[in-house]
Simulated assay, not measured.
Amino acid sequence: MTKIYPNSPTSLSPAVDIAVDLEPSSFTVWRKSLLFNCSGFTVFDAKGNLAFRVDNYSFSNRTEIVLMDTAGNSVFTVRRKKLTLVDHWHIFEGEVPALRRRFSARKHLTLLPSKVLAHVKPSGGEKGPIYCVEGSFSHRSCVVYDEQRRPVLEIRRKEAIGGVAFGGDVFRLIVHPGFDSGLAMTIVILLEQMFGSRAAPIRG
């Protein structure tokens, strides 16, 4: 099996903070939990250290998913809004019970051809930019733009050394300077829910 990460997944590193470097930060996202008999995500930084994890994701409960740091602390929690005809999610920051609602996300629906997949905007009285997700999540080719059409994060296919493709379960997350890497991974979780790639496995 092609090696996904260079370091041991059990060596814990500090939680990833907001990206402040002048260069984009690169993460490897593996659509698999490291816990036995549990679905989820495992995310490694550019050095191969564990950065984020999602271990409480299950097929039977798609209404709430928690993104955790390496120590198991909640970074963001996404909850599906009830009684809606379209995919509409709320994004909370912090630990239960003191969760703070920060953003809401809605799947983009249109009868016309469009590259737009979803929109993420501040919740309630929160101020901040509205983000637009464009591209194809099933092909692992997405870009998220702010209101000034500046890219803040990208999702790309990942290839191993020698050009061997990992497929859709392993891909790259590129976080541009100034964007919260935790929020970036939360958007990945939302896209997974909205576009059901688990129900239709990616080939090649």
Rank of each mutant, 00 (worst) to 15 (best):
M185K: 13
Y131R: 10
G94W: 04
A105D: 00
V20P: 01
L173C: 11
D169Y: 07
F41G: 03
R106H: 00
S136I: 05
A15P: 11
I174A: 04
V170L: 03
V143P: 01
G94Q: 03
D55L: 00
L109D: 05
K82R: 13
W30V: 06
D69Y: 05
A160N: 04
D21E: 15
N49E: 08
S74N: 08
P24V: 07
A71D: 13
M1I: 10
G125Q: 15
R106P: 00
R31K: 14
R149A: 12
C38W: 11
E23Y: 13
V16W: 05
K115S: 14
A98I: 06
P6N: 10
F59C: 02
V143R: 09
V78P: 00
R156F: 04
A200E: 09
F195W: 05
I4Y: 05
F166D: 08
V29I: 14
M68K: 15
T2Q: 11
S136K: 08
E147C: 12
F92W: 10
G94I: 08
S141F: 11
S136F: 08
G125C: 15
R106C: 06
W30H: 13
M194I: 03
R156G: 09
I187P: 08
S26Q: 14
A71Y: 13
K3D: 07
Y5I: 12
M185P: 11
P9W: 06
V16T: 11
S104I: 10
T28N: 03
D45E: 02
W30S: 09
T2G: 02
A184N: 10
F179D: 02
E95P: 04
L50M: 07
R80M: 08
I4P: 03
R106D: 04
